[in-house]
Every structure is written in structure tokens, then in C-alpha cells.
Design a protein around this nucleic acid. Sequence first.
DNA 1: CCTTAAAGCTAATGTCATTAGCCAATGCCG
DNA 2: CGGCATTGGCTAATGACATTAGCTTTAAGG
Lengths: 189, 189
Amino acid sequence: MPRAGLTPDTVVREAARLADEVGHDRLTLAALATRLGVALPSLYKHVRGADALAQRLSVLATAELADEMTAAAAGHAGADALRAVATAYRAYARRHPGRYPAAQRAPDPADAEHQAAGERAVGVVYAVLRGYGVTGEPAVDAVRMFRSAVHGFVSLEAAGGFGLPQDVDRSFERLLDGLDAAFRSWPTH
Amino acid sequence: MPRAGLTPDTVVREAARLADEVGHDRLTLAALATRLGVALPSLYKHVRGADALAQRLSVLATAELADEMTAAAAGHAGADALRAVATAYRAYARRHPGRYPAAQRAPDPADAEHQAAGERAVGVVYAVLRGYGVTGEPAVDAVRMFRSAVHGFVSLEAAGGFGLPQDVDRSFERLLDGLDAAFRSWPTH
DNA sequence: CCTTAAAGCTAATGTCATTAGCCAATGCCG
DNA sequence: CGGCATTGGCTAATGACATTAGCTTTAAGG
């Protein structure tokens, strides 16, 4: 019987696709093995187990998200950059409903690649805030507000937490206006 | 052998305590049964299964959260009310790390009690916004921003998503200042 | 070729959720 | 006070999943 020709990368990438299709919670080694045409234990030749896979998936998703945020920021400044980055963030989460929750796993301090991806994503937000004149210690707080608001919106949206039929896109626009107002009046000390 | 004397309520409440102790993801029917001094299948006499338990837990947590938000809002107005309610929200999430994620489950449209609890929690936020003169359709968007920011902050905090050692309490205060700025300039049409 | 690292397999174990069906404690009603 | 229905608890059986151990065979390199 011919080999399947898997590598750790193949496995993680297929896991990402599968997660997007069936949902983060239904991503299972069993389903992944079936998808790859392989018996379940064979996966252990490429990943150390379910937890390690989740970890690798988090790295992948964080890096992709950082890439898209970076690309979105290019050529924009101020409120414009804020909109572009946040919109890219939300678009990624909607396009990859399985990957996105995976990215929420806290970066493993022992994994340099994971750390780097996380810092890259956060770095884009710092750059946006620099456009508001927000730097240094206050920027730490501002980054946290950005992440909280955008992540919160995106995850409530994904969970079906917005019950009313009212236009969700418009609500997101208002949220961005709100963040803009907040950052324009952000303390500098 | 004497009976354990369980009721659906006993079971759900113990599940809530257990979830707070071991974490939402490690709340398992097996562990719950052990905790209650009963064999696992016996639980099925009181709850329909793991999913139904999660549902009941969501109702419990949502109602508790709504209660605490309501209590916190009493006697406050404007920015003061905003702070009080948001702080109560965060305090609940920190005090009940297992219940809080359970509350994020979207209210079941078929469960009137669940719907009511959700609406009660959201109602407190509407009341806060009324203090800013924000009502009607724009209030829908504002409520969503409030929920996004506070839920996002709280869940990133719980997930260990704030890597830097920088004071998290202060960041939350700044977030509240930011929300205040946003709501003070909220559009009225 | 022929050897060997590794990719894949089957088998075994353990945890959990769920369903079926049995038995005994409890409480009601005569 | 006693009989009986209700029902809360049990054990046993099944099935999904993750993990580990250990075997086999592919396929790549000397």
C-alpha cells in the first residue's frame, strides 16, 4: 500500500481546513485522520497529540491573522488604518470560523514562532495607535482596548450572541467610530 | 442504601460550583457524578444530557450575572453607572471562571427563562446608555459595543491573553474611560 | 542491492457520554 | 398500618475519541 506522504505541515494545514468546515469544537483527531485517508494513530508520527495540534493550529492562525492585518494597514494612517485593520481582523474571523478560535490560545512562551506571530499582530495595532499619537505605556492599555472590542465583537457575532435582526455590519462601523473617539481622547501619560 | 436526594436544581448548582473549580472545559458528567456521590447514569434522571446541562448552566450564569449588574447599577447614573456595571460584570467573570463561559452560549429561543435572563442583562446596559442620552436604534449598536469591549476584555484576561506584566486593572479603567468617551459622542440618529 | 529510518498499521487501554433495563426507597392512599 | 405506584438510583452494554506499544513495510541513501 502506498504511503499518504504526510508531514507535520500537511497535517496542521488540513486540520485548519477541517476546523473551518466543521467548527473548532468538532475538530477531532479521528475526523482529521479520516480526512487524510489514514488511521488515527498514524497522526502521532507528525503531531504529538491533540493538544500539540491545537497549539500548532494557534500558531498558524495567529500568523495568518497577523499577515492580513499587516497587509490591510499598508498605505493607511489614523482612523483609516484603524478601520482597515479592524475590518481585516473581522473578515479573517468570519472567513475562518474554525481557525479563529484556535488563535485565541495564549502563545506558548516556549514557542518562539508563536510568540513572534503574536507580537507581530499586536505590533500592527501599536502602529495604528501611533497614528493617534498614543505611544509608550498608555499604548499598552489602548492595544488591550482594541483587542477587547474587536475580539469581543467577533466572538459574540460568531456565537450568535447578537439576537436582534438589526444590521450587524452597521454595529461594527459604530464600534469603530467609538474606538476612534476613544483613541482620539486617549491620555498620554 | 439511602438516596442522594438530587433534583435538577441541585445538579445544576453543583455543576456550576464544579465548573468554577476545575474550569469550564473540564466540567464533565463523570466528575459531576463523582462529586455528587452518584453513578454517572443517575444524572440522567435530572438532566437530559451534557448539552442540556450546559444549557441550564448558561441560564443560571446569565441570571446571576444580570442580578449582579442590576444591583451594581442601582443608585448610579452616567459614567458612574457605566463603571459600576462593567466592574460588576468583570468581577462576576473573575469570581466564576467556570460559569462565565457557560453564559456565553446563545440563549435558546425555546427557553423563556433563558431569553428573559439575557434580556435582563442587556436591559441594564440599555439603562446605562439612557444616561448618555443614547436610545432607540443607536442604542442597539452601543449595547453591542459595550458587550464586545467588556466581554472581550474579560475573556482575553481569563485566557491569559494579556502577556505583558503591565497592570491589567489599570487597563480596564482606561477601557472604561474609552467607552465613556465613545458613548458621550455617540450618534443619535 | 541492502540496510535502515520512519510512515503507516493493528491491537489494547482508558475516559467519557449515552441508552436500556433492573431494583429498591419513598410516599401516598386506602 | 400496609400495599403499591413512582421514581431515583444502580449495573451493564455500546460507541466515540485519545493515547501508547509494538509490528511491518515503504522508500531513500550508501
